[in-house]
Design a protein around this nucleic acid. Structure first.
Lengths: 202, 202
DNA sequence: ATTTACATTAACCAATTAGTTAAACTATTT
DNA sequence: AAATAGTTTAACTAATTGGTTAATGTAAAT
């Protein structure tokens, strides 16, 4: 098992950690260098500036957040209920493993929304098939009338927000971290049930 | 109409703007002083340090975000549907008027979750009445089984997240800001309809 | 009017920051 | 082996930052 990262890779790893933890404004190049175990001048040798280094880390983070394979779920041939269940389950599971990334991305985008444009040249977000399916379900009177966009926004809202708002939710509703974590674990299924019931015609 | 703010008030206004726009790490005391039209030394004279100034701004922001009158709606004598409609409508309207505050609060809390404890000593969040009402509705077989906490989390998720994720939503789903704003305006009613349908038994 | 209290100023300070530089080191090519 | 290319280092730089200080100005109390 080869354990030898290149200097560039060491820098990227350390930078990701520091930027996600402290944000662009709070991150320090010397800290990144210390974490990577290298001399700070190398950061500029390889990446030229703090902002350029940040852009690379940010782009990688946001591409992972959008997660092409979740788009794949939406566009698969499965029925709508299964899709929603899979999407919710997997999305929550992925964020569980990267709990600080949503806050990082959403905040840095709120500070500088233009950053998203560099990313979108390279990510293909095409949900036409899902849209068609939804239209069909509506037309067949199987579900309420709702746009694909709004349904996805609702789903993502309920998947992501409890992570983004963890300190508030923990402080307001739960006395300890274990209850919070139980809530999150349950939401892998409760969110999809909620959504499926929400779109059901009654 | 008296237009004369005290120096303290000028500082607080300028600080709020700068902290919300740039965050604690990115905000600059000199900028706050410039915006307030005062000498920078006054920031320390009146508020002692950057962090103390931030704490005051932060506490005010988070108390407004939690909005006691929305708790009041939850605990009022209205029926459940009306409560949900009122809550959603008013919450979205309030955030529309302070669009950058959720990101600010959620991010700063993610960086330093302990900050919430100073706030919670002073805000009374008591939703017992709402909980009882929900229990009754469940017991009467009027709605699905769901905890008050989880219902509120779902509601807040769908109210807040589209603001927090504005740049992503705009870039992915809408070509222009007008469509995004139309979406938000519609959600004052579409979110509550979605929620009400979601908890409705078949 | 004088004294005391409070508010404000301009200059200053030590530490930190992102970035630069020239020399030294290591790897590759001739 | 020498020359060239690429990598790394330690020291340095100018600017910025949060905070301090002593003097001055203003308001309030005596």
């Amino acid at each position: 098992m080869v354990n030898k990262l290149t200097t560039e890779e060491k820098i990227l790893q350390a930078a990701e950690q520091e930027f996600i933890e402290k944000g662009l404004a709070g991150a320090r190049m010397q800290q990144i260098a210390d974490t990577a175990g290298i001399n700070k001048a190398l950061l500029h040798y390889y990446y030229r500036s703090k902002d350029k280094l940040f852009e690379i880390v940010f782009k990688t983070a946001i591409q992972n957040f959008l997660i092409p394979k979740l788009i794949k779920i939406l566009n698969s041939n499965n029925n709508l209920e299964d899709k929603i269940k899979q999407f919710v389950y997997q999305y929550i599971a992925v964020i569980q493993g990267n709990m600080h990334i949503p806050n990082f991305i959403l905040y840095e985008l709120s500070i500088n929304p233009m950053r998203i444009q560099n990313v979108f040249k390279e990510v293909n977000i095409d949900i036409e098939k899902f849209k068609e399916q939804l239209k069909q379900e509506i037309s067949n009177k199987n579900i309420i009338e709702i746009s694909a966009e709004e349904l996805i926004i609702n789903i993502i809202s309920m998947c992501v927000f409890p992570f983004v708002a963890k300190p508030i939710i923990t402080a307001v509703f739960y006395n300890n971290i274990e209850d919070y974590e139980k809530l999150i674990e349950n939401r892998k299924t409760s969110v999809s049930n909620f959504i499926i019931n929400a779109i059901k015609l009654k």
